[in-house]
Design a protein around this nucleic acid. Structure first.
Length: 670
DNA sequence: CGGCCTCGAGTTCC
DNA sequence: CTCGAGGCCG
């Protein structure tokens, strides 16, 4: 039986300790020394041990964590925890604001509140008569997991609400918030996991969610989790009218609401907050991935309502992250059309820079091992200004038992022994009959070289799989009846495929040459060879010296060309293509035009409004100009459209002439 | 021989 | 877009 004085002292101690917790964890402004705090804490613990009947789940001593449980109970939320519709472009914010205005259908003022969008784990906290009784993860929005015992270990969650003197606690308040791990705590956690030889947490959000879902609350207690609360769900006895008021109410009652919340009278002000916070995010000691934008007025929120559990009165504005972490599921090897072995990463899909990335090239063996990337690693994926994602490196440690990547000794497709020529970065399958080469060459033929309409990689792979296609000539012998037997091909699509293949026979000679897959002969060199020799026959008969006489061709390329034509299989292929009606001679229209712009070199960057890239190029070439991809001192001028790339930057640095679309049109007119 | 310029080749996502 | 490497010029 506890005596009255012990009970009173326990209550007093709890109040004091909770007050100091609040000063320290919520306000970040402690009143007493750590030692003084510890003395109060130890006294309460001793008192509770001496009088077990005084112990209570909302005692601060319980924050150190209870014994582990078997599993989490499911808990139905009092009010659905909807998710937010996401926007990534500033324009979409404006569109949303227009939608809001239209649906409100009145001239009353509209105010918005923006708050940093914390990258953490959403939770709901239920307070009955001012006491924290239970809390749950978001789960599917309807039902979450009961993580009450873990939440009690988080010092910035009040176990009892702070009340003004004489104030009655409301019977029920459901507080919504985001549990997160400060960056410093995240770094410490990963150091600790590494020291124990365990896998690092990929990001603070995962670490927070994982820490919260520990079956042993003592582990949760040891992690420096914190909370930012952002709203109220179900409630009884509250008379709040705006979100801004709700945030103030939460702060007054001991909750930690983010100081970055701002109220805006106009959507323009919201827009500038979005830009402003993208700069400020780096200063924070926690991760945010955007801003949450809400209508301030609850009555206006009610008018807008929700669609599919997503409120129409709020939006999550997210910046596209430029890096992300994900799991490297495996390293695979593909054999390209030249026989080069190309390792690529199979990734756990992850969003980077606004798109979902699931594969990425790993270039070559040396590159993989220099970066120390291994299967099973958590890796950092980057998608900077450029479009193509790259694997930057692993987050150490490697998973146990992992080994450095080794290129296979034999070709995964034809089992030929792989070679790696001295001084070259690439491994190669030397087997010229390797199925990968035939297949990849065909894909290159239809897609890049001959640019056959409606025929792409999928078509080629499918017909290859059916055994209908093994070489370029096979393509021109395909009949409609053969295609209609294949899944997905009806009479009409089969006929149009055959027609389109037939039409491609008219493609110019240099494209045929380009498609033959001669080493070092790409789009440009194929044109140079076509112009210089005029026909496949003359090219095949040319000596090394004659080939080297072509501008831009030296001994290495000349030898590769000579060698290719000295192979009988190749000359037979060319002859067969000729018999099928493909063009092996230079047409008049292929000759470089002579014109006003002869000798000038242009580079196009960005998107032009009234021309496609190809049209712009054709228009310039018609007048004798050359169009290339790379900006250099030799470039006459750079034509810059919308969203220009890094080429414009380089052109400025070199002090080159830069033309906009108007200037370009003037140039064409003369 | 060094350095710049170009080209070839492989590549991602929707 | 980037890397690597061939071609060319000084």
């Amino acid at each position: 039986m506890a005596d009255a004085s012990a009970e009173e002292r326990a209550r007093e101690l709890r109040t004091q300790i909770e007050h100091h917790n609040y000063r320290y964890y919520v306000l970040d402004d402690p009143e007493v020394s750590d030692a003084a705090y510890d003395r109060l804490f130890d006294e309460l613990k001793a008192l509770e041990q001496a009088h077990p009947e005084l112990a209570s789940p909302d005692s601060p001593t319980q924050r150190i964590g209870a014994a582990p449980s078997e599993r989490f109970q499911k808990l139905r939320h009092l009010q659905t925890m909807g998710s937010l519709e996401k926007v990534t472009k500033p324009d979409d914010i404006l569109k949303w604001a227009e939608d809001v205005r239209r649906r409100l259908d009145s001239d009353e003022p509209v105010a918005f509140v923006t708050e940093p969008k914390i990258d953490g784990s959403a939770i709901s906290l239920v307070y009955e008569n001012g006491r924290f009784v239970r809390g749950a993860t978001r789960g599917d929005g309807e039902v979450g997991e009961d993580v009450t015992r873990n939440l009690r270990t988080i010092r910035s969650i009040p176990l009892t609400m702070r009340l003004a003197s004489g104030e009655q606690a409301p019977p029920l308040v459901e507080v919504r918030g985001e549990i997160y791990l400060p960056l410093e705590g995240f770094r410490r956690l990963n150091e600790q996991l590494a020291a124990e030889g365990r896998k690092a947490a990929p990001n603070p959000r995962n670490a927070a969610a994982g820490s919260l879902r520990q079956l042993d609350p003592r582990i949760t207690a040891a992690r420096p989790l914190a909370i930012w609360v952002y709203g109220i769900g179900a409630s009884e006895g509250l008379t709040l009218e705006t979100h801004w008021q709700a945030l103030a109410w939460l702060r007054e009652h001991g909750f930690r609401a983010n100081p970055g919340a701002e109220r805006h009278e106009s959507i323009e002000s919201v827009m500038s907050a979005c830009a402003e916070w993208e700069r400020r995010r780096a200063e924070l000691d926690y991760e945010i991935d955007g801003l949450v934008i809400k209508l301030d007025s609850f009555s206006q929120q009610a008018i807008l309502g929700s669609l599919h559990q997503r409120p129409r009165w709020a939006r999550a504005f997210k910046w596209a992250p430029t890096t992300a972490q994900t799991e490297l599921r495996g390293i695979h090897v593909r054999v390209g059309r030249t026989g080069a072995l190309n390792p690529w990463a199979e990734l756990e899909p992850v969003e980077v820079g606004g798109v979902t990335v699931s594969t990425a090239t790993l270039h070559n063996e040396e590159d993989i091992n220099r970066k120390d990337i291994r299967e099973g690693d958590t890796v950092i994926v980057q998608r900077a200004g450029d479009v193509i994602p790259q694997v930057v490196g692993p987050v150490l440690p490697h998973p146990p038992g992992s080994e450095p990547f080794r290129m296979p000794a034999r070709c995964p497709l034809c089992d030929a022994e792989i070679v790696k020529p001295e001084g070259e970065a690439m491994h190669r399958c030397p087997n010229r009959a390797c199925p990968s080469r035939g297949l990849e060459t065909l894909i290159h033929w239809v897609q890049s070289a001959m640019d056959i309409e409606g025929i792409g990689e999928k078509f080629v792979r499918k017909l290859w799989g059916e055994g209908l296609l093994r070489s370029m000539p096979d393509l021109y012998r395909l009949r409609v009846e053969q295609l209609t037997g294949i899944e997905g091909y009806g009479e009409i699509s089969a006929r149009s495929a055959v027609d389109s293949i037939e039409r491609s026979k008219q493609q110019p000679f240099f494209r045929v040459l380009f498609g033959l897959n001669i080493p070092y002969v790409g789009f440009v060199t194929a044109q140079a060879l076509a112009y210089h020799f005029g026909s496949a026959e003359k090219l095949a008969a040319a000596t090394q010296e004659e080939i080297q006489a072509v501008e831009g061709i030296g001994p290495v390329v000349a030898e590769a060309v000579g060698e290719w034509f000295s192979d009988e299989e190749n000359t037979l292929l060319v002859a067969e293509l000729g018999e099928l009606g493909l063009r092996l001679e230079l047409g008049d229209e292929e000759r470089p035009a002579e014109g006003r712009l002869s000798g000038a070199i242009y580079v196009i960057t960005g998107t032009l409004e009234r021309f496609s890239r190809a049209q712009a190029q054709a228009a310039l070439e018609e007048q004798g100009a050359k169009v290339t991809d790379s900006v250099s001192a030799k470039t006459t001028a750079v034509i810059a459209g919308e969203n220009p790339g890094s080429k414009l930057e380089k052109a400025r640095r070199l002090g080159l002439t830069i033309l906009d679309e108007q200037g370009f049109e003037q140039l064409l007119r003369g």
